[in-house]
């Protein structure tokens, strides 16, 4: 009882040191990104995000096509992954026999453990050939009246990158939505069924709306993943710096341009422009993730979001 033991003091100092390392790292991260891109920030300011040329030789840089490619590939990914992962999550929480839940969830979550570069490899040699020979021509023949599905067919394209991203973000959206749906009180289901709802009606009108903000959070979390995904996209998107309406055309993303050019850059301005791209990417993902956390946290606190819980 006489004061704190020496062991306690050492213990606290050591732990504090470890804990301090985390904010310090973030400090370094933000500072280094800012310092590294100073040259480009001074030259272009915010106009960087609306410039459309990317010419390392003439040292003229603008990131609009990169931002466009990042947003479009991530949107394709979400358009495919959201219905699928929600379908799986709803099935597993509301309909599936109990013994099936763990194994299926486990299999899909294993997708999250596969390294990005392996997705890229599989994409190059399996996915893209199939897309190019059958899926893309089929899309052009059936949906060719839309501007997204016109023009010459390339294998490596925005759509190929979007599809591989969809597979990659699916496990994240699925597992978070599943957690959120599991957190919905059983009384919601019982009340709906008691009023004579079918099982589907109970799930769709009483359970899903209750978990809505958490599900949106899960989707945004997936968006954050899709925006920053690098290797698979770099290997499949075709790496061409232009804004095309057709999803069959190659594109470029912020992460891919860094991956391709950083180790080969020679001029200070080129490095600065690439670091500026990294800074923009970092800022976007922080915003997106903060939004997602906020929404998921609201459901965790038990606040229904779909009107009065129905």
């Amino acid at each position: 009882m006489e004061g704190r033991s020496a062991g306690d003091v050492i213990f606290k100092i050591a732990l504090t040191g470890a804990a301090l390392s985390v904010p310090t790292l973030l400090g370094f991260l933000v500072f280094e990104l800012w310092a590294g891109s100073r040259l480009a920030i001074a030259k272009y300011g915010l106009g960087f995000v609306t410039g459309t040329t990317w010419d390392p030789v003439a040292e003229d840089f603008g990131a609009l096509p990169l931002i466009f490619g990042t947003l479009v590939s991530a949107s394709i990914a979400l358009a495919i992954a959201v219905p699928l992962s929600l379908g799986v999550a709803i099935y597993l929480t509301e309909f599936s026999p109990k013994w099936l839940r763990q194994p299926v969830a486990f299999l899909i979550e294993l997708l999250a453990a596969i390294p990005s570069v392996v997705y890229g490899l599989w994409g190059i040699f399996v996915l893209v050939p199939v897309l190019k020979s059958t899926v893309f021509p089929f899309l052009r023949d059936t949906l060719g009246f839309l501007p997204f599905f016109q023009g010459p067919i390339y294998g490596n394209s925005m759509l190929a990158a979007g599809i591989i991203l969809a597979i990659m973000v699916m496990p994240y959206i699925m597992s978070v939505s599943r957690e959120v749906l599991n957190a919905v009180p059983a009384s919601q289901r019982e009340a709906a069924m008691g009023l004579g709802a079918t099982r589907w009606e109970a799930a769709w009108t009483a359970v899903v709306p209750y978990a809505r903000s958490g599900i949106i959070g899960a989707v945004i979390l997936g968006l954050g993943r899709a925006l920053g995904e690098t290797m698979a996209v770099t290997m499949l998107i075709g790496n061409r710096n232009e804004i095309a309406a057709s999803l069959f055309a190659p594109g470029y993303t912020m992460a891919a341009v860094i991956a391709n050019e950083f180790s080969e850059a020679t001029t200070d301005m080129h490095f600065a422009a690439l670091t500026y791209v990294a800074l923009v990417l970092f800022a976007v993902t922080v915003l997106v993730n903060a939004m997602a956390r906020l929404l998921i946290w609201r459901v965790g606190r038990g606040k229904p979001s779909g009107g009065q819980g129905a």
Binding site: L29, G36, L227, G228, F262, T275, A278, L281, T285, V288
Partner: peptide, 17 residues
């Protein structure tokens, strides 16, 4: 949480600088 959501390529850029 912020850093867990940061793309790994950005971490690479920072390690480089």
């Amino acid at each position: 949480d912020v850093m867990n959501g940061t793309p790994s390529i950005v971490i690479g850029v920072v390690a480089w600088t």
